[in-house]
Amino acid sequence: MSARYPAARPRRLRRTPALRRLVAETRPRPEELILPMFVKEGIDEPQPVESMPGVVQHTRDSLRAAALDAVEAGVGGLMLFGIPAHKDERGSAADDPGGVVQQALRDLSAELGDDDTVLMADLCLDEYTSHGHCGLLTLSGDVDNDATLERYADIAVAQADAGVQVVAPSGMMDGQVGAIRAALDHAGYTDVAILAYAAKYASAFYGPFREAAEGAPQFGDRSGYQQDPANATEALREAELDIGEGADMVMVKPGLAYLDIIARIADTATVPVSAYQVSGEYAMVEAAARQGWVDRERAVLESLVSYRRAGARQILTYWAAEAARLLR
């Protein structure tokens, strides 16, 4: 062979869609996708979220319908976020047996079988407190870590009473997993799993979510308890601590700007690693697609492949139901 021609031709395996499918290294699957869903108390019809086209705040009835649709599409899990009619400094609705998430969990538990999908609930206080922070406040306005742990423990038991299969503490309080695990075990819920937001960064990509969940802080921000985007080693420590306290899965949030963090945690974690494709990522793709600047469908699937390639075993995404159908 003449030296002017290449001996190796990797393009051979890229020639046709069938060849590319045959040798693809990474394939997200529908059952690895988790759909975040918002349910709001006191509304009569679903309320569109302006900054997230296609996403709504559900009524209990519309939540049931959307959940059944997602299950039919093949998604692996549903993650519930609640928006109560009344908020106070303690976030009392978060563990109220008649609270919006507890009612929704009972609805879906009755509607869906354990084999259909995994029923999850966010466990935090920001959607429920009048001040919008993830915990109880001291007189000086700081979040009281240890007092907040007691609230988280009560919320976990209330969600378990309502039929949750996985609780997902997202407040980034020190010791939250251990406190929740102890409370669940003491209440007899040893089979309820914990998906810990182990590395949740103080990110600029959460804006649309705060509209959807109506949980923006009324003063300050959450950088005092969420991680600094500059830090990577800290995320490894947080994941290790959560696993040591009993986390069954750990999560990185956001995802796309933190693929390196996903990869580093996945390399060492002894439990499944999840990632959250957050509202800002969703909103950017949707906005660009509406302008014709990106191919929406390709961008959605490419982003999911990047998460999976980095090592995420489960992906929370607002495109879960649509992507599940595309992947099938």
Rank of each mutant, 00 (worst) to 15 (best):
A7M: 12
R9K: 12
L13T: 11
T16H: 03
A18N: 09
R20F: 04
L22H: 09
L22C: 06
E25L: 14
R27W: 14
R27M: 11
R29C: 13
P30G: 11
I34Y: 04
F38D: 02
V39P: 02
I43H: 07
D44W: 04
G54R: 09
V55M: 03
S62A: 10
R64I: 14
A65H: 12
A66L: 07
A66H: 13
L68H: 15
A70G: 09
A73F: 09
V75A: 13
V75E: 15
G77I: 12
G82P: 02
I83S: 01
K87N: 00
K87V: 01
A93V: 11
A93Q: 12
P97I: 11
G98V: 07
G99S: 05
Q102G: 03
Q102T: 09
L108W: 06
S109Y: 13
D114V: 13
T117P: 13
L119T: 12
L119Y: 15
A121I: 00
A121Q: 03
E127T: 12
S130K: 09
H133V: 01
G135V: 00
D144I: 01
N145I: 08
A147Y: 01
T148I: 04
L149V: 03
L149G: 08
L149F: 00
Y152L: 15
A153H: 09
D154E: 15
A156R: 03
A160K: 02
A160M: 06
D161S: 05
A162S: 12
G163Y: 11
V167T: 12
A168G: 08
A168Q: 10
M172N: 14
G178S: 06
A182C: 07
A183P: 05
A183W: 11
L195Q: 10
F205L: 07
Y206K: 04
E214A: 09
E214K: 03
F219C: 00
R222C: 07
R222S: 07
D228L: 05
P229H: 06
E234R: 11
A235Y: 00
R237K: 08
A239H: 02
D242V: 07
I243M: 14
I243E: 12
G244W: 04
E245W: 10
E245P: 06
G246M: 14
G246A: 14
V250M: 03
P254K: 10
L259G: 10
D260L: 05
R264P: 05
A266R: 06
A269Y: 12
T270G: 06
V271C: 11
P272K: 14
S274F: 13
Y276H: 15
Q277I: 00
V278A: 04
S279Q: 00
G280K: 00
Y282T: 00
Y282G: 00
A283Q: 01
V294E: 08
D295T: 14
E297C: 01
V300A: 02
R308M: 03
L316Q: 13
T317A: 02
W319V: 01
A320L: 08
A320V: 02
A324K: 04
R325E: 15
R325N: 09
L326H: 13
